[in-house]
């Protein structure tokens, strides 16, 4: 009689073998993150992705689920990243409508910003003696996370580290950006927005939208163009430099 498992662990074993547990965990952690983000009046520090990642990490360590097993279930969410990347064409296309002949100026500043992002990150990290395994993850950190992870795979960097660094960069940019722009006396909304989109991608764009619509539109354009340019150029830069 005692050699049958109690039903509760039967259920447990069954659930952790199916994708359901990982999916429920991921989606509910994200909903919790969104709720907290709304409650905090959309404070960039209460980033819903960051909250969700912390909650899921705690969740899988409490139930002692290996990451590989978690990912096997959560891969259905992960798969849509590629589709989301393709969808970025839609806001970029709509952004083109408001350019008013500024394309050349925007592309030049994008190149300057993109090069600065890679050079300062890799240069500073090496100077401070950061583990070489982490340095590669920093290369694409100013590119929007779905594209950054694609770049990471091409340059033998960890997509996970790249995603974490990209989200952190977005949060830092959204929090610090305005002080930098104020100190430099950059007042035009389109310039402020574009700089924020280039440096802090989606999270910076969301911040820009909450301040000014024109800034937001230019921020999403900056994010999109940085994504395309980064995907085309960063792998070559890494092949040449590393």
């Amino acid at each position: 009689m005692n050699n049958t498992l109690p039903p509760i662990s039967d259920i447990w074993v069954y659930l952790s073998g199916s994708p359901l547990l990982a999916l429920v965990l991921t989606l509910s952690a994200y909903l919790l993150g969104l709720t907290l983000y709304e409650r905090s009046q959309r404070n960039p520090l209460a980033n819903p992705v960051l909250i969700a990642v912390v909650v899921v990490c705690m969740g899988i360590s409490v139930i002692d689920m290996p990451y590989a097993q978690y990912f096997e279930g959560a891969q259905f969410v992960h798969f849509l990243l590629g589709t989301a990347t393709v969808s970025l064409a839609i806001p970029i296309y709509k952004g083109f409508a408001s350019l008013k002949g500024r394309m050349g100026v925007l592309l030049l500043s994008l190149m300057a910003g993109g090069i600065t992002s890679v050079l300062t990150a890799v240069g500073m990290a090496r100077w401070l003696g950061v583990d070489e395994a982490l340095v590669r993850g920093l290369v694409a950190k100013s590119v929007t996370a779905p594209i950054a992870m694609g770049i990471a795979e091409r340059v033998q960097a960890s997509p996970t580290l790249t995603a974490i660094f990209a989200v952190s960069t977005g949060i830092l940019g959204a929090v610090l950006g305005r002080y930098v722009l104020d100190a430099l006396r950059v007042t035009a909304w389109w310039q402020r927005g574009f700089a924020l989109g280039v440096a802090a991608h989606g999270i910076g764009t969301s911040r820009a939208f909450s301040v000014n619509a024109e800034a937001g539109a230019y921020a999403s354009l900056g994010m999109g163009l940085h994504g395309i340019a980064g995907a085309m150029l960063i792998p070559y830069a890494v092949a040449w430099w590393f």
Partner: peptide
């Protein structure tokens, strides 16, 4: 999809463990 872009990079980011 883009409205909840952040959701999509949770699975990869949890690899931070």
């Amino acid at each position: 999809i883009l409205q909840h872009l952040g959701l999509l990079f949770i699975p990869a980011s949890v690899g931070v463990v």
